[in-house]
Amino acid sequence: MKNLIYIALLASVFIFTGCAYSEKEPKEEKNMEKEAAMMNPFETIAVQKINPLVILKLAGELLPDQSTELFAKVNSYVKNIRVDIGDRVVAGQVLMTLEAPEIQSQVATAKAKLKAQRAVYLATLATYDRMVNANQTEGAIAQDAMDQIAARKLSDQAQLAAAESAYSEIKNIDDYLVISAPFNGIITDRNVDLGAYVGPMGKSPLLVVQNNQKLRLNISIPEANTPFIKLGDTIQFYVRSQPQHKYFAQISRKSGSLDLKLRSEKVEADFINTNHVLKPFMIAETQIPLQNSEATFFVPKSAIVDSNMGMYVIAVEAGKAKKIPISKGRVISDRVEVVGDLTENDVILKLGNEEIQEGTPIPNK
C-alpha cells in the first residue's frame, strides 16, 4: 500500500512539473510553432525590395564625459581636506594638501645652497669686473691672473646653474603636495581621512572627480548594423529607473573598428545632462533608427535556413528548389533583411526546410 502511495505521489510531481514547464514556454515561440504547423510547407512568395525605417533596440551605458582618479605622487601624510563627496569643484581649485617633512627639509636645504652659491658667484663676478677694468691699463694685471679669474667666474656660474636646477627639481616635488581639480566637476569618491599616510603605490585614489554636466552614451553596434549609423544621428533612450521619461542624445564619435570579441563597433552619443537628472553608469535602453540609402530585400524569418552548410533561402526555379546563400542584416517584426543573389520578383519558399535538397521538385499550389 505504501509503495502504491509513493508511486502516485511521484506521478503527480512529474505531471505538475510538466505542466509548469509548459506554462513557462514563451508565448511567442508557441505562436511561431502554431503558424509553422498551419503553413503550407510549399507556400511561396515573391521577394520585393523595400526601404523601411528599422528601429534597433540596444542596451547602452551612460558614462561621465571626464573622470579622473587623483593619487599622491610622493609619500606623505594628509594635512588638510577641503572637499567631500558630492561637492562641486572648478578647475585649479585646491582639494587637498599633503605634508612630507623630509621633502620640505630638502627644499629648505636646496634653497639655502642656491643662496650661498649665488653669493659666491656675485662675489667672483665683481672681482672679475674690477680686474677687467684694471686690465685696460696696459701691464696692470698679469695675463695669468686674468685667465684664472675668468675660469673661476665660469666655474661659479656653472655651479649656480646646478644649484638652481636642483632647487627647481625639489621645489616641483614640493608642489606635488597640493592636490588640485583638473577640471570642473563633482567629487564622487573620497578614500582618505586627515593624517592618513599616502603614496604613489596606493591602490585606492585619494579622490575621484567626474564631469557629469555632459554624459557619453556608450553603445556597441553589431557589425551588420554599422553601415547605417552616422555621425549626427539622434538616439532616443530611457533609463530603467525612469522609464516614463524619454531622452535624446546625438552620435558624436565612432571607433571606426570592430571589437574582436563581440564583432561590434563602439559608438558614443553626447547627452547634455541638464539639472543632472541622470547619473553616470546608468543602463540606458536605446532606440536607434537605421535607414538605408536604397531599397533592399526583406524576407520572412521562416524562409531563412541556417544550417551547417551556411545560411540560405530556397528559391523555386522551373519547379525545382535552388539554394541561394544569403547574409542577414536588419530585422523588422517577422522579416529579415537579406543580401544574396536575388532579383526582384524571385519566388522563394516561405517556410525554409533543411531537408529540401537542391533540385527537389516543388509542387504548385
Rank of each mutant, 00 (worst) to 15 (best):
D147Q: 10
G185L: 02
E169M: 13
Q157E: 15
I187A: 03
S155D: 14
K171F: 12
A163R: 00
D156W: 01
A162Y: 07
N172T: 10
D156C: 14
I187Q: 09
L154A: 13
A163H: 00
K171A: 13
I173P: 02
A163F: 07
L154I: 15
I179H: 02
S165F: 09
Y176S: 09
D147W: 11
S165D: 10
N172S: 12
Q159V: 13
L160E: 14
D175M: 04
K153S: 06
I170C: 06
S168L: 09
Q157T: 07
F183S: 01
A150M: 07
I173K: 11
A181L: 02
Q148R: 08
I173T: 03
I149L: 10
F183P: 00
I170G: 01
I179T: 04
R152G: 15
S168T: 12
A162G: 08
E164S: 06
A161V: 14
S155R: 11
A150H: 10
L154H: 09
F183I: 01
I173G: 01
L154S: 05
L160N: 09
A158M: 12
A158F: 14
I186P: 01
N172V: 09
P182T: 04
L177C: 12
G185I: 01
A151I: 10
I179G: 00
E164F: 08
Q159C: 11
